[in-house]
């Protein structure tokens, strides 16, 4: 049920808007759209010399789940490289039931999304954009 979906942790992540905005001089800026629902995420990253994220910012025109995911991602992404981000994505996938195992913080907040397959892509869209930004 949707009341169980929009639990306080997800709403709080979305409202925190961690990393919301733009970077003045990003190394890369990538926009990804979900053609089915129209959600749109733009991720800016500033990378250090070793390919690790020094700064990250996002603009989300999408639902609360997409906003919460982008917020959680931004909160945990600094200092990680592409492999580290892939690990975080795996956590998000565990939370929504697309991978085996227990999801770590902060992505365990998305466990209620597991029952709503139509919304899985809302959680994963920021990861898709960040993957492109790091490729």
């Amino acid at each position: 049920m949707s009341d169980q979906l929009y639990q306080d942790r997800i709403v709080a992540l979305a409202k925190a808007r961690t990393g919301a905005g733009k970077l003045a001089a990003p190394t890369k800026s990538v926009r990804r759209d979900n053609p089915l629902c129209g959600d749109r995420v733009t991720i800016d990253v500033l990378l250090d010399g070793q390919g690790r994220i020094a700064e990250i910012a996002h603009q989300v025109r999408g639902c609360l789940l997409c906003q919460a995911s982008a917020s959680a991602l931004a909160a945990a992404a600094v200092g990680r490289d592409a492999a580290g981000i892939a690990e975080m994505r795996h956590d998000a996938e565990r939370a929504i039931g697309r991978a085996e195992g227990n999801a770590a913080e902060p992505f365990s907040a998305f466990i209620p999304v597991k029952a709503h397959k139509a919304r899985h892509e809302c959680v994963l869209l920021p990861f898709e954009a960040l993957k492109d930004a790091l490729s």
Partner: peptide, 12 residues
């Protein structure tokens, strides 16, 4: 409130 979140709430 994003339209998808309105619709998801309405489903409940």
């Amino acid at each position: 409130v994003h339209p998808h979140d309105v619709a998801q709430t309405l489903d409940s």
